[in-house]
Design a protein around this nucleic acid. Structure first.
Lengths: 152, 152
DNA sequence: TGACTCATGTCAGTAGTCTGACATAGCTTG
DNA sequence: CAAGCTATGTCAGACTACTGACATGAGTCA
């Protein structure tokens, strides 16, 4: 391991550290979701539907940070396996409101317990004030990045 | 857009916000790297090699947060296209030290400018003190997650 | 009404990453 | 020395997510 050689300025780059933290979080979530046969996007989709029943495919995609095409593939699988339902025809426009089935809700319950334990572990070393600092700082970073990405 | 309906507790979840920030950063980086024909992992690999010449495939993989198999595929392409070089035989053990070629260095220079502008944009709304807070907090989160992931 | 713009759902093909597996080199331990 | 453990490089197959493209429905405006 020649990694302890010299902490170059990668370790002081907030972008690099953000990627490292996100990667660690994703790995931890995958580790606890795998025994349940779920991926992170799979779980995100169910969690979004539990908190906001009737979300459309595109809205779910934005909420899970994937394209609507990717979410569409996932939704078709979830629908086929009986975790969610969508009306055959759109009540209005082309938007198909999606809802959890009892089976989906049950599956989500197990996943939520697992994911919550990961989040608690992640927050273990932080004070309340540090947690709210982190929320505020991350929101600012998202806003700055999104402004220039969407608008130009 | 029914998204402004109610900020449920997803918006207060540090894990969710971390994913959102990371997703926004990744999208912004992809947007500026695409015109250069580079992916984020591609750039990460070159940047790591510039800062630490002679890193092995496995070390690059850890530094770019992908598996060594994925990095191996990338390195073979980079080597084929003349961005990096690796000795045909390992000087010691099986480890193949990788180095940038002049072409690789030149390619990295353009990418670095683009990526630095993204990072500056991301930090635009933050004070110096907030930036160092963010570094400290993210490091703590990484440590907490990694301890339980590697060691258990 | 008709043209234009935007968002949505969906199909198809591509690219990046992952898991699984194997052989090999170095280190440790009995 | 032999056995076992760990780390590495590599190949192959599978999966996930992405880009590109198309048709359709809603809203805007002349």
């Amino acid at each position: 391991m020649s990694q302890e050689g010299a902490g170059v300025d990668l370790k002081t780059s907030l972008g690099y550290l953000l990627k490292e933290a996100s990667s660690a979080l994703r790995a931890a979530m995958e580790a606890v979701l795998r025994p349940l046969g779920m991926t992170v996007t799979h779980y995100s989709c169910l969690e979004l539907l539990a908190q906001r029943p009737g979300l459309s495919n595109s809205e779910l995609a934005r909420g899970a940070f994937v394209t609507r095409q990717s979410m569409n593939v996932l939704l078709q699988a979830l629908e086929r396996d009986g975790y969610v339902t969508r009306p055959a025809e759109a009540p209005v426009g082309k938007v198909l409101p999606t809802r959890l089935t009892p089976r989906g809700r049950h599956s989500l319950e197990q996943a939520t317990v697992a994911v919550r334990s990961v989040e608690l572990r992640m927050l273990a070393g932080l004070t309340e004030s540090e947690q709210s600092d982190a929320l505020r700082i991350l929101r600012s970073m998202v806003r700055s990045l999104r402004d220039a990405n969407d608008g130009g």
